[in-house]
Amino acid sequence: MHETSIVNSIMRTLEHEFEAEKLKRLRAIHLKVGILSNIEPRLLHNAYSAYHLTNPGYFHVELHVEATSLKIKCETCDHITDVQNYRFICDNCKMPSKNVIQGEEMLIHKVEFED
């Protein structure tokens, strides 16, 4: 995945969502990325470090990346399965399912501001 463009997208999104005054107090960004998102947390951190070289204004802002595993919820029996080896099949009733409830996320799920 193109981590550099992801980092740019994150910062652009935040600049769009929050006012410039508030962004000056930005302290930490928490991301949730699923295993299916093709985002590699370590590469994302590297890309984020590289981003600061051209945008030093956010240098003090911490980036936290939480990687989430892949889970599906069966439409037939409601059982939740941890998907292993990309077999999208219910553990309980063996029915195939595309109903991914976790693992596809690419979310900015929390931002912290200094008071």
């Binding site: 997208s9 302290r27 690419m106 979310l107 900015i108 929390k110 912290e112």
Partner: peptide
């Protein structure tokens, strides 16, 4: 800043929102 308080906002913004 660590001694002060921190204001948290729970968001759920897609990284590819744009």
């Amino acid at each position: 800043a660590a001694r002060g308080t921190v204001q948290c906002e729970n968001t759920n913004i897609n990284l590819l929102k744009a």
